[in-house]
Design a protein around this nucleic acid. Structure first.
Length: 580
RNA sequence: GCCCCUGUAGCUCAGCGGAUAGAGCAGGAGCCUUCUAAGCUCUUGGCCGCAGGUUCGAGUCCUGCCAGGGGCACCA
């Protein structure tokens, strides 16, 4: 028996009991095993009620059959029928202890890789070239990064790609501005202020007719593949990429320059994709534009809503790019699943792209395409977050603010030296920024609050980091190699509760990964951490009067807690320092 | 007008068709000569937006309302 989830294990036992007792076949999942909220009950089985109807027997009779034929003396201490037909299950202390002990040294901490790995293409972050990353990029970046880590750890293959906004009409004016500023490719310049550069170009475009004309001509040159123009365009991309790299490095984001598949990347595929869709006969010309009309989408007037492949002027829009994107990742890269971490307002857009992709056969039943939407970040006044001056909040400033806020508290609390405090402040500040976001359901709008995310109490990343630091403190002081003697004995309720909590990691990872919902992992980690602090408070470990075997057992639980917290935080892209 | 998302404690949020709906913050009462008090224990606080329906069982599924947000043809 492997180190899978306890619920699955119990489900398999219940399924066995029903097969033996009533000749009924169910899957472990259909056993409806849930952690119980009842005092003194670990898990409950809710299968009897729903099965009763199908079998034409009273629910309690079905429950009785489960209890009678439950071949599980090794892991279940008691299984009792309660209420209308619940089966309350208490696990055996010895089994819990053995399972916990077996986790020691298991770098996956009981999480088995998925049986059937998928190949995911994950689109996230997606900033724009020639613009600084701002607060609007925070969520897609950290949510996408957490999903990348989660899916990879779950055992899937994931190719992240950064869909840069690196193409389109603004680049005419940006390139002209670059020329006006005396730029040459390879000239060793750098743009220190991307936003200032963009705004200066914009102002000239709006006020200087000659400049505007040159800009429009420049767009034509760019799209025509003019070598000199492309070289200048690459300067802009290069300068911007450097900026993105810096922000990603500060935030601890996994995206690398080689993960960039910007809009320009799909440019060579657009004409062919459009031709292919025309050849498949699913396009029609409407108002001069070449369109696909996926069923079920209507506009304000109730007329069918088009997905525009080629505009009246012959140009391509983002629909075309996204169709080409689907075709590329499925057709050329052989992905099975496409994930897009993009704001909720794009829901209809993606629904149409996916629908059209299925019409075209780009997506089949073997594929899935999911828009992983997320809500807006709101300020504490409930409105879109802005600077005091009403401007856009730069992401790099947000990150340094988070670290600066954290540094203040660290200075008050920590006894570490200045260098170590600086590292801790980064871990705490950036952890707070990420955890505040990832611990909320991503689909909802999220209220941004420094005071809440960096609070010294409550459900925050620092609480988890603090619990982990306490573990490390005890382990360091013990002077023992915990791995040498992985014997666990559970006598105190707090020890038992902790072991049980530690064994729930696989279920939490699975829930978070399958629903692309990092907050499910966050909720679990917080529960594990609170269970640990209760244990820490009630169960002395290194005190003189603690017997050696009890101490050894508690050290194992402490080590495992630290492992679980470190792994879990890591899956959210959050560091777990040994000391705070 | 149609479509999508959201409505759960004073605030911020969890909640997988299952039992008496949970956390954190804020409010109240305690706990540090003892392994990190960024902590712990106890406690106050709910017509789960409203109304129907399905079900043995609904915060959860369905329908209709109400409120907030978003989207709805050539910007991405």
């Amino acid at each position: 028996m492997g180190n899978g989830d306890v619920g699955i294990e119990l489900g398999a036992r219940v399924a066995g009991a029903l097969r033996r007792g009533l000749g009924v076949e169910i899957t472990p999942a259909e056993a409806v095993i849930r952690p119980s909220t009842r005092d003194g009950v670990d898990y409950q089985c809710n299968a009897a009620m729903s099965l009763a109807k199908k079998l034409g027997k009273p629910p309690r009779e079905v429950a009785q059959a489960i209890v009678d034929d439950l071949d599980s003396a090794d892991l279940v201490a008691t299984a009792e029928i309660a209420g209308p037909g619940f089966v309350n299950i208490v696990l055996s202390d010895a089994w819990l202890a053995d399972r916990a002990a077996a986790l020691l040294g298991d770098e996956r901490l009981g999480v088995e890789p998925v049986a059937e790995p998928r190949r995911y293409a994950l689109d996230y972050s997606s900033p724009n070239v020639a613009k600084e990353m701002h607060v609007g990029h925070l969520r897609p970046t950290i949510i996408g990064d957490a999903i990348l880590r989660l899916l990879r750890f779950a055992g899937h293959e994931v190719v992240p790609h950064n869909h840069l906004g690196d193409w389109g009409t603004p680049f005419g004016m940006l390139i002209e501005h670059l020329l006006d500023e005396g730029w040459t490719p390879g000239g060793g310049h750098s743009i220190s202020d991307l936003n200032g550069f963009y705004q200066a170009a914009r102002v000239k475009f709006d006020t200087d007719e000659g400049f505007a004309t040159r800009s429009r001509q420049r767009v034509v040159l760019l799209q025509g593949g003019d070598g000199a123009t492309l070289a200048l365009w690459e300067v802009l991309v290069e300068q911007s990429t450097q900026h993105f790299e810096k922000v990603y490095a500060e935030l601890g984001i996994l995206l690398r320059p080689e993960d960039i598949y910007g809009e320009s990347f799909y440019n060579p595929y657009l004409a062919d994709t459009v031709a292919d869709l025309e050849a498949k006969g699913i396009t029609e010309v409407s108002d001069g534009a070449l369109c696909v009309f996926p069923p079920g989408f209507t506009n304000r007037e109730g007329d069918p809503l088009p997905l525009i492949l080629r505009k009246r002027d012959g140009g391509y829009g983002y629909f075309t790019t996204d169709m080409a994107t689907v075709r590329y990742w499925i057709g050329e890269r052989d992905m099975t699943d496409l994930l897009y971490v993009v704001g909720a307002p794009q829901a209809q857009h993606f629904a149409m792209v996916f629908a059209a992709s299925r019409m075209a056969g780009y997506l089949t039943d073997a594929h899935s395409a999911v828009h992983i939407g997320f809500g807006t970040i709101l300020g504490e006044d409930g409105k879109t977050i802005r600077t005091r001056a009403g401007g856009t909040v730069k992401l790099s400033e947000l990150v340094s603010d988070a670290v600066a806020h954290a540094a203040k508290t660290v200075a008050e609390r920590s006894s570490l030296d200045a260098d170590a405090q600086e590292r801790v402040a980064r871990a705490v500040g950036i952890g707070a920024l990420k955890y505040a976001d990832l611990s909320n359901d991503r689909e909802k709008d999220y209220t941004f609050s420094w005071s809440r995310m960096l609070a010294k109490e409550g459900n925050t990343s620092v609480y988890l980091q603090y619990a982990n630091a306490r573990c490390h403190s005890v382990l360091a002081k013990s002077g023992q190699d915990v791995a040498a003697a992985p014997a666990v004995a559970l006598t105190e309720p707090a020890e038992r509760a902790l072991a049980l909590a530690l064994l729930r990691l696989p279920a939490a990872v699975d829930a978070a990964a399958t629903a692309y919902a990092p907050h499910k992992l966050a909720a679990y980690l917080y529960e594990a951490a609170t269970t640990f602090t209760t244990f820490y408070d009630t169960c002395p470990i290194l005190k003189d009067d603690v017997p050696a075997d009890v101490r050894a057992s508690r050290l194992v639980l402490t080590k495992l807690t630290s492992d679980v917290l470190t792994l879990g935080l890591g899956l959210m892209g959050i560091e777990a320092p040994h000391e705070l």
